[in-house]
């Protein structure tokens, strides 16, 4: 099963590398976002309790989360393309476990997101952020987990879609808001009440905690911090839910109406 999933993931990665526009677009776009928004808001941004932090620095983990979200969106769109082009049907008729089909896509998307976020991690020292080995390990673990979570979430939504324009709608009204309300752009503390509620119940916000805390704590401190452990548990949970949901969707075959419910002819 793992071999099949890795082979399918490898295919995703080769396809990504062979489309240079995609590589440039996915790497450059979040960096531009970060530089423009980060620099633009720098003078007006004062987060409570984070007065010493520039917006560029505040937004930094948020951009990582955005990279993962975008990698997931791109890889989910390839599900629709694969179905359109016909490739998907040959995978579906192969005697492979349905979970390996899901994992193939998810791991492929994760690998792509990893390349981007690892490159982006190089910017940390320039922000004056230092990372110990332990923290770096936690951070990389968070990258893997969150990328998988997003990729699985994208899969869950993209699987039943027959057109990529339909998926764009889902992306704009559902996936993007999940990111926007994760604390990536602004902290939860000073927002209006209704927004506070939305941000509190947003599971993706916990992934951001996993991405931010290792920059300010050692691994030991993080692993004994209740907030970190809660965030980890919630992120593992929604990742697992999305993976299992995706597998259920792939397993489902369209079924003919069972005759007994029809009037005899």
């Amino acid at each position: 099963m793992i071999r099949v999933a890795l082979a399918l993931a490898h295919r995703e990665f080769i396809r990504f590398i062979r489309q240079p526009q995609r590589v440039v677009g996915t790497v450059a776009q979040p960096i531009l976002f970060w530089l423009f928004l980060g620099s633009g808001f720098s003078s007006s941004f004062r987060a409570p309790g984070m007065e010493h932090i520039s917006y560029l620095e505040y937004f930094y983990p948020g951009v990582m989360l955005m990279m993962m979200l975008f990698a997931s969106i791109f890889s989910s769109i390839t599900i629709i393309e694969d179905r359109d082009a016909g490739f998907l049907q040959s995978v579906l008729v192969a005697p492979v476990s349905r979970l390996s089909i899901v994992l193939g896509k998810v791991l492929g998307g994760t690998a792509i997101a990893m390349v981007q976020t690892l490159i982006f991690t190089i910017a940390a020292p320039f922000l004056g952020l230092s990372l110990g080995l332990g923290s770096l390990a936690l951070l990389i673990g968070a990258y893997v987990l969150t990328s998988m979570g997003f990729a699985a979430m994208g899969f869950l939504f993209a699987w039943p879609m027959r057109s990529s324009s339909g998926f764009h709608a889902i992306m704009m009204v559902f996936l993007m808001p999940l990111w926007m309300l994760s604390g990536a752009l602004f902290p939860i503390e000073k927002v209006p009440g209704w927004l506070h509620i939305l941000m509190t119940i947003n599971p993706v916000a916990h992934a951001l905690v996993l991405m931010r805390m290792p920059f300010y704590m050692t691994a030991e401190q993080a692993l004994s911090d209740q907030r970190y452990l809660t965030a980890l548990a919630v992120t593992v949970l929604w990742t697992a839910v999305c993976l299992l949901g995706s597998m259920r969707r792939v397993e489902k075959r369209d079924r003919g109406l069972v005759q007994t419910s029809l009037t005899p002819h």
Binding site: I14, A85, G86, Q89
Partner: peptide, 14 residues
């Protein structure tokens, strides 16, 4: 079973 579909089931980019 082997299945050959009407629409191509191979990846054009590979």
């Amino acid at each position: 079973m082997g299945v050959v579909f009407q629409s191509p089931a191979i990846d054009k980019h590979l």
